[in-house]
Amino acid sequence: MSHSDRETVLEARDFVKNYGEVKAVRGVSFSVQKGEIFGLIGPDGGGKTSLMRSLVSLLKIDGGELYFKGQAVSGNPDYVRRNIGYMPQRFSLYQDMSVAENLRFFADLFNVDRDLAETRIEELYGFSGLKPFASRKAGALSGGMKQKLALSCMLVHSPDVVVLDEPTFGVDPVSRSEFWQILGKLKEEGTSILVSTAYMDEADLCDRVGLMFNGRILIVDEPSALPERYPGKLYSVRTDEPHLVHDALEESGLCGECNLFGEGVHLTLADGTAESRIGDLLRENNLAFESFEAIESGIEDLFLRLMKGDGDER
């Protein structure tokens, strides 16, 4: 489906956010379409949180404008706050209240009718699997369950647009995958989701992603389209000695990019380097390797490539 015939629910146009001298967001434009999961992917300090907090009207805008369902965020903070769901980065629930108490508390806060709230809370238990823990204190939940509760609290007033700031931070891979399954179900219900993460592998779970680094969005696209956006041809050396192979390749000057990856090294060839030189070099240095072959780039390859040249101004 083309994005032009869909409704835009969140939008940033040349958005700027500064903290004194520190330029947290340096002119960012993108939009989130109705019913999609849009991922802001990037490391801490890249501006994700500043962007999200501004989108939900919690921070003053220093340049450009942000829009929620076509209305400027700066002029309509009450409208935004009533209708958007926002899950902040760190656990923000009442640790000494039970799961059920937290949910009811947030329902009251958003003026949800009591009966309606009970129905909604049951629905949310269905999503989260938290019902057996309804009377457990929030502080005694595991990390993964806390995140599910925070998400549920934010959904209790049934917003159809939600902004989630690193909901899977510090959560183990199993709980992360469960959390993403919940997001998938929300999307099926028609909820539009803007979610940030520092885990690059979560990009594939989004409909579209923006890679954010150093206050800028470096690229926006569908995850499946990202490999084609990699400039140049990427190779992989598989080896049991990744760091020795990496150091040898880096010192050789044969490579453009040369990065450690799980099972070896990913690289591009420097201008004028023949493919065969890589294998030759490793053999000359008595470095064992399993394979050397061209590969499709992953999101982390692309990120490493794009962030170069944008890391100097900090």
């Binding site: 490391p43 510090g170 490493l304």
Partner: peptide, 14 residues
Amino acid sequence: TSGVDPLSRRNFWK
């Protein structure tokens, strides 16, 4: 290395 950019993570592993 939680939350650190990919380049810094690699430098840290070195």
